[in-house]
Amino acid sequence: MQIGIDKLSFATTPFYLDLVELARARDVDPNKYLIGIGQEKQAVVPPTQDAVTLGAAAALKLMTPALKERISTVLVATESGVDNSKATAVYIKRLLGLSRFTRVVELKEACYAATAGVMMAKGLVATDPQSVVLVIGTDIARYGLNTPGEVTQGAGAVAMTITANPRLLSLDQVSVTASDDLMDFWRPLYSEDAMVDGKYSTQVYIDFFLQTFERYQEMTGRQWADFDALLFHLPFTKMGKKALEALLGDHDDPDSQRLRAALTASQQYCRQVGNLYTGSLYLSLLSYLQNGQARPGQRLGLFSYGSGAEGEFYSGVLQPNFENQLNDVAADLATRQQLSVAEYEKSFNGQLGLADTDVSFDTSKDPSPFWLTGQGGHQRQYQVNQ
């Protein structure tokens, strides 16, 4: 029995910041952002959006009445959770109108956790092939205003259904996972903003990729030339390029050229949105499928990484008519509204975060399908935009 990703969707905020404008405001050469980091635009999060609303919006793009009846479990991966106890998945299940008899769990291991959700979902489907597991990766990447990490911020969510006989990507049996207790990136409980050792984190990322891929090769006999594309977690687009070049080195044959072209296609959406944390690898997958030379029967390699640190390399084969199982990301991105740097800074400072006070937010300028309307009595208030 084949198990894998049946449908895949993406959602982000309705607002973005042009990073050329940010560079000018920060007195930085724009090419440091556009070329050095490989980013052009960044999602801006209004106070009315958080990990719950973004995750629900991504999942809504997949929903049909028939699918709702089959979902047995919702696994939400996030490092932007809104409660130390209550799972983000509980809120999302209610907003989507799913059955009371649905298992809901929140997963955390930095940017890696959505892949953990995929692997857990495979096991659940194997025990009940009629069921569907909804896996969501939803996050807001924050590093602070006028900080070195500011250019690698972003926000958004991916949603996937994991099923038997998938129509998008059938997953191979072999995967390789590695983990170590490292401090390349972390977010203490008292901080809304992440802390990162950038150069160290980049090296750890590359090391984890090379090590897990080497072990995968030993277990399967496959070489990098056997893949039509290698897809990466992209906290910024240059990160994936560094990892791929560490593997390919000076090779310039048709196989390495194909992999480099596939990487470029996979970077396009991330370049327009920024860092998604748990959803980043799967936005990379979406970008390749809609901007690259993707065809049924191709074998794709996927490298998932989460600081702190954990990485996994696994693979899958594209299915016939896979393109029908995706939402039109380019069309969605084209509808966003550009904000000025001043408007971005106001939105950044206006998010609810760790505040313990009652507050109500104005939702009139937010066209998103779900809103965070405020907080009352220490409880976040969510509403469906009807």
Rank of each mutant, 00 (worst) to 15 (best):
D6L: 02
T202F: 15
L168M: 13
Q337Y: 01
V82Q: 10
S284T: 14
Y288E: 04
F227S: 07
T373A: 02
S340N: 12
S256M: 13
P235N: 11
D228K: 12
A116W: 00
K41H: 04
F208M: 12
E245W: 12
Q268A: 05
P65M: 13
L96D: 12
F209Y: 10
A159P: 03
D18T: 02
P367A: 10
G308M: 04
S340H: 11
T88C: 14
R70S: 04
D226L: 08
G81I: 00
G144F: 14
K199H: 09
L326S: 02
D27I: 12
V28H: 07
V359P: 13
N165W: 03
A11K: 00
Q338V: 05
R271H: 06
L8A: 07
L168H: 10
A330F: 13
A11S: 04
D197F: 11
G154K: 11
L302S: 09
R70K: 10
T163W: 06
Y190E: 12
L210K: 06
N324P: 03
D358H: 07
Q386M: 14
M120S: 12
E109V: 00
G240Q: 13
K199G: 08
E109T: 00
A194C: 03
D184V: 06
I206T: 10
A294N: 06
G308T: 03
K242C: 02
R299E: 07
R167N: 08
S9T: 15
Y33M: 08
